[in-house]
């Protein structure tokens, strides 16, 4: 059990290091293929693909300054994620918690962990099996937007659900 667990972790994180929304190029979500759908397997039009999840379901939720509370809007996105994950059982997810640059390093790591955990708990409460979800925090180390104003900060205070093809942990 432990060994399988560790092996999966490494596979998941190879993807987790990216921050681009289009991290799953065509064919990357191979596990989604064959489950039926309108588009080419793995494409953004294939509702069982990771690309579809990222683009249509929405792979991320945003947070207020120094908060890990899920807004109504965030809960709506996460309910969609939960329902998608329950339909597409061949994926696991790594939830990345991030903070903006207004804060000290260690605190932001802890804050990112809180945010990722808030998303994880919500998805579990919606019925996603706990062993399909893992969390990680990048603190302020991996901002998406690089300006130093609220326009960028608001996009950086995020939790991103990163899919990986594979069975439960």
């Amino acid at each position: 059990m432990k060994i399988i667990h560790a092996g999966l972790l490494i596979a998941a994180l190879g993807l987790g290091a990216c921050t681009n929304a289009d991290r799953f190029g065509p064919g990357a979500g191979g596990a989604g293929a064959g489950a039926g759908g309108a588009g080419a397997p793995g494409s953004v039009n294939d509702p069982t693909s990771a690309a579809y999840f990222n683009a249509t379901v929405g792979d991320r939720v945003l947070f207020a300054v120094d908060q890990s509370t899920l807004s109504a809007e965030a809960q709506q996105v996460l309910a969609g994620q939960a329902s998608w994950l329950m339909t597409n059982g061949a994926y696991t997810a790594l939830i990345e918690g991030h903070a903006d640059e207004q804060g000290t390093q260690a605190y932001n790591l802890a804050l990112g962990a809180r945010r990722a955990s808030a998303v994880q708990n919500f998805l579990i409460s919606q019925g996603v099996a706990p062993n399909r979800l893992r969390t990680i925090s990048y603190g302020k180390e991996r901002p998406l937007e690089i300006c130093s104003t609220e326009a960028c900060y608001s996009q950086n205070r995020r939790a991103v659900t990163v899919l990986t093809a594979g069975a439960g942990l």
Binding site: S68, L109, S117
Partner: peptide, 9 residues
């Protein structure tokens, strides 16, 4: 050191 478990550090 610090450890974060279940979102709590």
């Amino acid at each position: 050191y610090s450890e974060a478990k279940g979102g709590n550090t």
